[in-house]
């Protein structure tokens, strides 16, 4: 059972809070902290490519920098696109050529290392896609089938991560999307908190699509979106009326995700890939990324791995 940590980080500095990409020193400290508490690897965003080239010369050089600090490698990259209806909207077929070219370029940029997955939010923001219809989901699926062929050709799996505020987030929308996508080309990346916020039970959802799952974000939330924040303009993620902070580290008191049940399901289904931990925006409301990262790892080691052993012994 190997754990990877997903990128998000803030730490204090003489010029205010910074992320780990600010300087070599801040990256050095970040990686050492992640390694110190027992994570085995990291995930990142592929838009970090430009910073990587500026500061490390190549993606392979940056991975060496990671490895020198006791981490195995970079496992996954998240393709965080700016979904612009004019040129980058999966439900609008006229934008597909542009998106396909973007993935050809991206896979070439990252060809210097072996990634497991490239993760995407497969739809635009909900308000840019609504009304969400079967036709729009079908058009979206057609795009990702083609993208999946491109990434697979580069040796990387395409996998879909459904933010609670994206255009494919309800149970019905998810089922439609996975019915239209090719299981050989389009995989699923289950973010426990995002589905929980969208009132989709992450355990049930995972069980249903387990054979298509290629990774997870183990992340908690204290809130479900019961007021329609998912379609809030211009932003749901930081400006929702439900809460200023949607996401918490797993192990959080008050968290809604049943991680023990989730882990038992992971073991039951024979999943043998990497497990990623994420808690984006964990610094909101006085939170601390380093502490959250440590607590999540403590929970993984002392609770979830024990549960996994119990389940495996059955």
């Amino acid at each position: 059972m190997k754990w990877s940590y997903m990128d998000h980080w803030r730490s204090p500095s003489p010029n205010g809070p910074i992320d780990q990409w600010q300087t070599y020193d801040s990256m050095d400290r970040f990686l050492k902290q992640v390694a110190a508490v027992g994570y085995d690897a990291i995930d990142t965003f592929d838009h970090r490519y430009f910073t990587i080239i500026d500061q490390y010369g190549s993606v392979a050089n940056y991975q060496e920098f990671v490895q020198e600090r006791g981490l195995e490698r970079i496992v996954n990259t998240f393709h965080a696109a700016a979904y612009d209806q004019r040129n980058y909207a999966p439900h609008i077929a006229s934008t597909h050529d542009n998106i396909l070219e973007d993935f050809r370029v991206t896979m070439d940029r990252w060809s210097g290392i072996q990634l497991d997955n490239i993760i995407v939010m497969p739809a635009t923001l909900y308000y840019d896609m609504e009304p969400v219809t079967e036709d729009k989901i079908k058009t979206t699926a057609e795009l990702w089938n083609k993208v999946g062929a491109i990434t697979l050709d580069a040796g990387v799996k395409l996998t879909c991560h459904h933010e609670f505020f994206c255009g494919i987030q309800s149970k019905e929308e998810l089922d439609t999307f996975y019915a239209y996508t090719d299981p050989a080309l389009v995989n699923l990346f289950v973010d426990t908190a995002q589905h929980c916020i969208a009132s989709v039970d992450p355990v049930e959802f995972y069980e249903k699509y387990a054979d298509r799952v290629t990774g997870f974000h183990f992340k908690d939330t204290r809130h479900q979106d019961l007021v329609g924040d998912y379609r809030r303009r211009p932003d749901a993620e930081l400006m929702g009326t439900t809460t200023p902070r949607w996401f918490h580290e797993m192990g959080d008191e008050g968290g809604l995700v049943d991680f023990e049940a989730f882990m038992r399901a992971v073991v039951r289904n024979g999943y043998d890939g990497w497990l990623s931990v994420e808690h984006d925006k964990a610094n909101k409301l006085g939170g601390d990324h380093a502490e959250s990262t440590a607590i999540a790892r403590w929970y993984a080691k002392n609770v979830l791995e024990k549960v996994a052993r119990e389940e495996a012994a059955k």
Binding site: S13, P14, N15, I18, Q22, T23, Y24, D25, T51, D54, Q55
Partner: peptide
Amino acid sequence: GAEVDMLQGNAGRRIER
């Protein structure tokens, strides 16, 4: 890369602010 190397203290005199 002066925006990072100089203004964020990544290189040279390491002045972060």
